Amino acid sequence: MRGEILQFDEASGEGLISGDDGQRYRLSFRDLIRPARLFAGQSVDFLPRDGFATDVVVLQAAPASSAYASPRTERQGKPEHGPWGYFMKSMRLYVDGNGRARRSEYWWFTLFYWVFLLIPLVPGMIFIGVGGDTYNDGLTALGGLFFIAAGIVWLALFLPNVCVMIRRFHDVGLTGWLVLLGVIPYIGGLITFIITLLPSQNYRNVHGPVPGGHSRETAEVFG
């Protein structure tokens, strides 16, 4: 499996790897197949075993300062795949609030969220309204089915919506717990809306590197 070294302590010979599967693995210098100097940011190949990285091979050397690379360097790597790619990323992560999400990632997901929600919701409202005005039970029942479909869509997208908001808060350097402000009537929604509009911190923060790099965000969900 491919991965990236998140941190490594030369004194203890221990570190941490973020695997391509989104999991983190303990790293020990003695598990290297070929001895090499290790730095945060290096690409490695390894065998995952019970939370540990074994048979580690260093694929890419990196300077010691790579963990604190410039924003431009952090943003290099595999590019995002546009609006639909952002949406699918959030769906793939689903209940994962780790790391950071730039504004474009959050707002493209939000756009698709409302599109998919309104597709069944709008005709449901129309059919129920028309059915009620004409005393047509068939139209009212059809509208009810559309409302049920809208409820299913809402349930399916609820957790990804919360998690991408958590990552958006992480991106501006805030704790994910602040999403709970949204439950405060009136002012809570306004505060969370303002936070989602704030620009990214253009440097690595405690929640991970600047979004857009090739590394996997690894901070804790509500850290």
Rank of each mutant, 00 (worst) to 15 (best):
Glu4Arg: 14
Ile5Ala: 01
Ile5Ser: 03
Ile5Phe: 07
Ile5Glu: 02
Glu10Arg: 14
Ala11Trp: 06
Leu16Thr: 12
Gly19Thr: 06
Gly22Arg: 06
Leu27Met: 08
Arg30Thr: 15
Asp31Lys: 11
Asp31Gln: 13
Arg34Gly: 00
Pro35His: 05
Leu38Tyr: 01
Leu38Asn: 02
Leu38Glu: 01
Ala40Ile: 03
Ala40Tyr: 01
Gly41Ala: 02
Gln42Ala: 05
Asp45Leu: 13
Phe46Arg: 00
Pro48Ile: 09
Arg49Trp: 10
Asp50Tyr: 12
Thr54Ser: 06
Thr54Gly: 00
Val56Phe: 01
Val57Lys: 13
Val58Ile: 15
Ala61Lys: 08
Ala62His: 05
Ala64Gly: 15
Ala67His: 06
Tyr68Asp: 14
Pro71Thr: 07
Thr73Val: 15
Thr73Glu: 15
Glu74Met: 11
Lys78Tyr: 13
Pro83His: 04
Met88Val: 10
Lys89Ile: 08
Met91Arg: 05
Leu93Gln: 14
Gly97His: 05
Phe112Gln: 02
Phe116Met: 13
Phe116Asp: 00
Leu118Asn: 04
Leu118Ile: 07
Ile119Thr: 09
Leu121Ser: 05
Pro123Lys: 01
Met125Leu: 13
Met125Ser: 04
Val130Lys: 00
Asn136Gln: 04
Gly138Asp: 05
Thr140Gln: 09
Ala141Gln: 11
Leu142Gln: 07
Gly143Ser: 02
Gly143Leu: 01
Gly144Val: 04
Phe146Arg: 01
Val153Thr: 10
Trp154Asp: 12
Leu159Gln: 08
Pro160Asp: 05
Val162Gln: 09
Val164Ser: 06
Met165Pro: 00
Met165Gln: 13
Met165Ser: 15
Ile166Trp: 08
Arg167His: 12
Arg167Ile: 11
Val172Ala: 10
Gly182Ala: 12
Val183Asp: 03
Pro185Val: 09
Leu190Pro: 00
Leu197Ser: 00
Leu198Asp: 01
Tyr203His: 15
Tyr203Gly: 05
Tyr203Glu: 14
Arg204Ile: 06
His207Thr: 03
Gly208Ala: 07
Gly212Cys: 08
Gly213Ile: 05
Ser215Val: 11
Arg216Lys: 12
Arg216Phe: 11
Ala219Arg: 12
Phe222Arg: 05
Phe222Ile: 12
